[in-house]
Write a protein that binds this DNA or RNA. Structure first.
Length: 487
RNA sequence: GGGGCUGUAGUGUAGUCUGGUUAUCACGAGAGCUUUGGGAGCUUUUAACCCCAGUUCAAAUCUGGGCAGCCUCACCA
């Protein structure tokens, strides 16, 4: 008998595609490659994640805005590395009706070049700084043949902050704040374990000084980058002529940062991290329906009383702020209804049948532990409260445990190759994540069937001992990096 | 961008190699009756050969192209 995890590891692709269709998360039949339809069940939760981000960034002095989807070519070509990085994958809008535009417009692949164009008009003085903004955005990138629902679409949903500061130090503090926010939302609220890495210089955002990315781990051991934050230095403020007068009346260029959680990817990570053999599991706060109440019908038994009890519970639970529904489909037998909601990841189910009415109790099933217990009427609200408070913590504890199981530390190249095949995220001593380490990273990738250097850990400081050697070139190791296959 | 596999009712499929009858089966969906503490039964209805060319008396079947899906390498925040 294979465990849930083993099942997911062996057949993660099949499992993932299957759950997307069965749980009605996305419809892949829309007829443009890499663009899927997000169905209500996933859309609800995706919206919730957006709101979590909005609530947090409203409190940090960021202001929400809505930028145009189109970015004129001229904005786009202002920052050299940015344009080189993104041009190959831009969708261009070139005509209206039958006529060509004089200039072409990019469907934004990210929005720096829209924001910085406006920043130049909005800030004049150090008193205008920091200037901190965010928006929700769908973005377009024609970057790969290997599209995958939620993970790699050609259109996907993004939350992006764009900020400018008078000094680099302030901008770096923003990056640290972004990391803390990521911990609060992704790990605490959504129960997704991850590691924040300082990305190697060869793997940074085009136009950034430094890129910091958070990688979650899928059951097959592949990392998935779910958020990034970047220090942009003056790389965008200078070409876009975003300048201010400082306190000495000198003209200076501010320092930028941007933070980009990939919301649809985060949802994809949720599917992979929390799902089990039965189906989807969702953090309590995210579930479109948190509690499903199933009346059980029998011929010869008066179902009025049962339905009355169900309705009473539903009404009271609703008043308490839970998202609760009753499934009173008489034509469906209990097992079918039970399995449907378990597969969809509804956290709690209350079963009410004749025995319960006689007994003054109900059966409560919880999806975090997949356990069922009998609870008397009077204790139902306390029990639900207890479950709701523990639910996401339980998911997190299970996810953290699986994450830790996949995390290992090695200094032997052959073992590294073996462990990568087993789906591990491996810490190894490495020469450098500056450009002089790129040759080693390239060699490692080609010799390990796709193992990538994800970077140096940001949450803790790890410094190799003097005698540690780079696992590839055997020169002195200056850093510990983490290696894994990646989406 | 490269390589491989695939496309038949809403879903999963048989049929394709070896062209030829009214395109198979199951699930689903609709109607009805019975049933309901972990995917129930009967009756009945419903619905499909991805698109465009070509070959042929005849194409789901062969050929070419396109589009789409999956796997994979590369690319890619």
């Amino acid at each position: 008998m294979v465990s849930n995890q083993e099942l997911k590891i062996q057949e993660f692709n099949d499992w993932f595609n299957d759950i997307i269709s069965k749980a009605e998360l996305a419809d892949l039949r829309y007829n443009i490659k890499g663009m899927v339809v997000y169905r209500p069940w996933s859309t609800y939760s995706i919206n919730k994640i957006f709101r979590m981000y909005e609530d947090v960034f409203d409190k940090t002095g960021h202001q929400q805005m809505i930028m145009p989807l189109l970015i004129p070519e001229e904005n786009f070509f202002k920052e050299k590395e940015h344009v080189q990085g993104f041009t190959p994958e831009v969708f261009w809008v070139t005509e209206h009706g039958d006529e060509k535009f004089e200039t072409k417009y990019a469907l934004r692949p990210t929005s720096e070049t829209a924001f910085y164009f406006m920043f130049s008009l909005w800030v004049d003085s150090h008193r205008d700084l920091p200037f901190k903004t965010y928006q929700r955005a769908n973005i377009f990138r024609y970057d790969t043949k290997a599209t995958k629902p939620f993970f790699r679409g050609r259109e996907f949903y993004f939350f992006e902050t764009h900020n400018i500061f008078e000094t680099y130090e302030e901008s770096y503090d923003q990056v640290l704040e972004d990391m803390q926010i990521s911990e609060d939302i992704l790990h605490v609220s959504l129960a997704i374990p991850f590691i924040f890495f300082n990305r190697p210089q060869w793997d940074k955002f085009p136009g950034a000084l430094n890129t910091y990315g958070a990688d979650a781990l899928m059951p097959n051991g592949k990392t998935i980058q779910i958020v990034t934050t970047h220090t942009l230095g003056q790389n965008f403020t200078k070409p876009f002529d975003v300048k201010i007068k400082d306190i000495n009346e000198e003209i200076v260029y501010p320092y930028g940062t941007c933070y980009g959680p990939g919301i649809t990817r985060i949802y994809g990570a949720l599917i992979g991290v929390h799902g089990d053999k039965i189906g989807l599991r969702l953090p309590f706060e995210l579930a479109p329906t948190q509690i499903i109440i199933t009346p059980l019908y029998f011929s010869g038994v008066d179902s009025n009383k049962i339905e009355e009890v169900c309705l009473d519970f539903a009404t009271d639970l609703d008043k308490l702020g839970y998202r609760v529904k009753i499934d009173d489909q008489k034509e469906k037998r209990p097992k079918e209804r039970f399995e449907y909601y378990e597969m969809k990841g509804v956290p709690v189910r209350i079963e009410v049948g004749p025995k319960d009415i006689d007994d003054g109790s109900v059966m409560i099933f919880r999806r975090d532990t997949n356990e069922k217990t009998r609870v008397c009427f009077a204790d139902v609200f306390d029990e639900i409260k207890k479950i709701s408070e523990r639910f996401t913590d339980n998911l997190r504890e299970q996810a953290d445990e699986e994450f830790d199981d996949k995390l290992i530390s090695l200094d032997n190249y052959d073992e590294l190759k073996e462990e990568l095949e087993k789906g591990k995220l491996v810490r190894v001593p490495f020469c450098s994540i500056d450009m002089d380490g790129k040759a080693c990273a390239d060699q490692l990738k080609s010799e390990t069937n796709g193992g990538e250097v994800r970077g140096v850990r940001m949450d803790i400081s790890e410094i190799p001992e003097d005698e540690e050697k780079c696992i590839v070139c055997n020169k002195k190791a200056n850093v510990f990096v983490y290696v894994a296959k990646s989406y």
